[in-house]
Every structure is written in C-alpha cells, then in structure tokens.
Design a protein around this nucleic acid. Structure first.
Lengths: 210, 210
DNA sequence: ACCTGAACACCGTTCAAGT
DNA sequence: ACCTGAACACCGTTCAAGT
C-alpha cells in the first residue's frame, strides 16, 4: 500500500495535462527499472509523444526527475501529518511515521534514493530554478520533526535539543534504509533489519524514568 | 590525509601492471568528476590505451568499479585495524574509526558512495564473479565490529547484542554521511554535523554507570 | 503554445584483426 | 596474451520547422 495519494482530483475528468503524464511516466519507469530506465525516449513513448517533447515542459531530464521528487515529498508530508494525528500517543505517531518511510523505500527504492540520496537532485541544476522542490523537501522534514517534538513534550522522548534529536533519528533511519536498498545489510549477517535498528534507537531515546 | 595507503610496494620498480593503472585511473576519475566521469574512453586515455583495452582486464565497466571498491575496502580495513591498536582506551579506537570513515567520505565522496550505497556494485553483475569484493567488504566491516566489541568488554559501551549494536552505529554513521554528501544536511538547518550526530549516539550508548 | 524529425556528440559493448 | 579500429545500438540535447 502507501500509494502516497497524489492524484487528488485527477480521475474526475481524466483529462490530465501532458506535463503531469510525463511526471507519472517517469515515476513508473523509476519503479520498474531504476534511474537508468528513465530515458526521455522511454518517457515519451509511454506518454505517446516524441522523445524531445519533454523539453517543452522541463528544462532537462533532471528537472523532470525533480518534479517526481517534489510530488513524492508532498505525499510523504501528508502521510506524516496523518500520523501526527494518531488517536493514540505521540510515540505511536513517531513509529507510524518511521513505518511510512520504510514502506515507501521498499516499494519505491529508486524513488526513495532520488529524494534522499541523489546528489544531483539538490545542488547544481534545476534546483535553483525550481525552488518548489526545496519547499516540498523541507515541508516533509518539518512534518517529521513535528512528531519528534510532540514526543518530547509528551515525555516519551528525552529532552535533548529537538534539532539534534531529529537529526539523529533521521540519519539512523536513512542509513538503515539505504544500506538495505544497496544490498549492504546481508553483508554482515545478524546486523538486524531496519525495524530492529530503529526499535533499538528509540528505546535508547526513551526517557530513563518511563 | 588518509590516502588509504594502498600502493604498498608499487613505487619500488615503478612498473605497475596495466590492470593496476586502469584501477588507479578509474579511482582518480571518480574523485575528479563522479560516476559519470568514469568513462571507459576517459580511463583509457589516462592510462594511454584504447577505449576498449579495459575489456582485456575486466568483464565490463562495473567490474572495473568493483576493483576500485575492493582496493578501498582493503584500505579501510587496514585503517580500522590501526585504530584498534590505539594506545589509549577502546573508546578512542571507536571514535578514531568513525573519523576515518568521515574523512574518507568527505575526501572521496563518489568512492564512498560506490562502496556503501551503489546497488549495482553488489547484487547482479560482477559480484558473483569477483568474490574478492565481498571478502574485502566483509573484512572492513569485521574490523569495525571488532572495535565495537572491544568497547563492550572495555565497559565503555552498553552490553547490547554486539551485532545489533554494530548495526545501529554503522547505520547512523552511514546515514549521517550520506545525507551530507547528498546535500540533504543543509535542508533543515541545525540538524547537526556528522560528528555531532555520532557524538550524541555514542553518548546514548555509553554505560549508564560510567 | 506545443510538438516533431533530423542531427550532433557521446556512451558501453562487440568483433574482426593485428602483434 | 594483449591491444586496436570500426561498427552497433543507445543516450541527452539542440535546432529548424511545422500546427
């Protein structure tokens, strides 16, 4: 599951602009065959346009990928915010957000790596042009950080400086995910699944008194 | 620093086989321009051979990259083992090993990502042919794990199951490094440097009594 | 405003030869 | 055993047109 419900109103008129269809095609190709499969020729063929039609909508290939990333960052933010409203305690929200991230990474590994690992996504190219990407990325991070803060005022996480605490949780989660996606988890057996690693960390971060 | 002293005996006769020069050229190109710059044509030009000469020494491009990775894994293992013999306590060894990893990642980002992130390095291709890569990768991990075990018998790290504990430290270290290399650390400011994140984690992992 | 076809420079890889 | 040159299929990107 976790389709990261984009496509909010799309299925009503079934119109869907060409630009949106290009983004959807790139996203699907990413899932099917990774970065190497996202070729402008393949994207064009899926949508039914020529291989250089995307240039009418995006500056270049990396700008198209940035649009895919922006869409997913928004989806993650929504999913995190939904978890923040968990009827149970804040700790359940945090664990839920962690599971959202793990599920997204396992179901869309190439897309996960695009959002959280690819060095070309952020720095040199379309990033400055498309500031929306940064806004979306920051938004999803903020939604995650809000849950951490919730846990702290809740008393279920230690009163460390929130930014540093969020940084630690985020780094561990990303590291465990990236190692598994890269096939580095099987290297040393008994290293533990992503869930086991996060469970251990969150135990350590619990209030000593609780 | 941290040249990961390979080239053990190489500078004596200055002979250096073509195969070794191809690996060195690929490694340099990786540093200079990332994965995209490691083109068989560029590698050949640096060494002074034709663009398909590498095929006489490696099955394909990814096998050449695997050779680069194997060499670096060996270098990291040596560096970790050197830290294990730190005259001070085991905790200094661990922190030293962490700093080795951080320095290696910052000085050779593309090579770090090749070793610890690239999904194509391990799974489908030359990996099965070149079992040496797995041996080297496992060796460097084992050297790191040995230091963690040292800290536990030393009493400076909690008596959690060693594999899980090593997994947590390794995941956090990799995650913090990968986020910085990918430019994701600046996204949310105040998130803390790699060193700050590792310092926080190791504090949490210290014996409550100590 | 949006799209197409041809063309360019660049890849990894293969193959028939050369020594 | 090791290397070369030509060739193939495939890229991203550009450009002159077309509607």
């Amino acid at each position: 599951m976790l389709t990261l419900s984009t496509h909010a109103v799309q299925h009503s008129g079934m119109i869907e602009t060409t630009k949106a269809r290009l983004v959807a095609a790139a996203s699907d190709l990413l899932d099917a065959g990774g970065q190497g499969a996202v070729t402008l020729r393949a994207v064009g063929e899926v949508v039914g346009v020529s291989h250089n039609a995307p240039y009418r909508h995006f500056r270049d290939r990396s700008a198209l990928l940035a649009a895919v990333a922006e869409r997913d960052f928004d989806g993650l933010r929504q999913a995190f915010q939904a978890k923040a409203d968990d009827p149970r305690d804040a700790r359940s929200s945090l664990w839920g957000a962690v599971l959202v991230m793990i599920a997204y990474a396992r179901q869309h590994p190439a897309r996960y790596r695009l959002l959280f690992s690819d060095p070309d996504l952020i720095s040199p190219n379309s990033a400055s042009v498309d500031g929306n990407l940064h806004v979306a990325a920051f938004g999803s991070f903020q939604a995650f950080a809000a849950i951490v803060r919730q846990c702290q005022s809740d008393g279920s996480l230690r009163p460390i400086e929130t930014a540093r605490l969020t940084g630690l949780i985020h780094a561990t989660l990303h590291g465990a995910i990236d190692l598994e996606l890269g096939g580095r988890a099987k290297e040393a057996k008994g290293l533990g699944s992503i869930e086991a690693t996060m469970d251990l960390l969150l135990d350590l971060l619990a209030q000593p008194g609780a």
